[in-house]
Design a binder for these strands. Structure first.
Length: 111
DNA sequence: TTTTTGACGATTC
DNA sequence: AGAATCGCCAAAA
């Protein structure tokens, strides 16, 4: 398998997201380098579907904590189910207290 | 090769 | 405050 660069990088960061926390596409993009845009992270996650790797994509949401990618899971409710299984509270397709549980790799991994 | 399309984000109207 | 638009950059058609 080839090193599909940012795909691998994105997967690695996503796997590092601790349980009960969540991050945003933009945060990952920013952490990997301002070269890539948040959209590429979304693309990477889309490709992650083809991968056999366990990618907790449910912990990656957009900047406001909205479950924009829920439709890409097995069922539109899978993402919310997984997040709730992590102890998060999802209401109206949006993560509650997202600001508090926001996990920014650029900060958390820096320390 | 050119065009279209995104699991986004920030800005402008 | 809500809606519309532009910018990012790579992959699929």
């Amino acid at each position: 398998m080839m090193n599909t660069n940012f795909f691998e990088d994105v997967y690695d960061v996503v796997r590092l997201i601790p349980k009960g926390r969540a991050t945003s596409y933009g945060a990952i993009a920013n952490f990997l380098g301002s070269k890539i845009s948040a959209r590429m992270v979304g693309w990477a996650m889309n490709a992650a579907h083809s991968e056999n790797d366990n990618i907790p994509a449910q912990r990656v949401v957009n900047r406001i904590g909205l479950l924009t990618g829920k439709m890409h899971f097995a069922t539109p409710t899978t993402m919310q189910e997984l997040l709730e299984a992590d102890g998060l509270i999802v209401e109206n397709d949006q993560i509650k207290n997202f600001k508090e549980l926001f996990w920014d790799p650029a900060i958390e991994l820096e320390i």
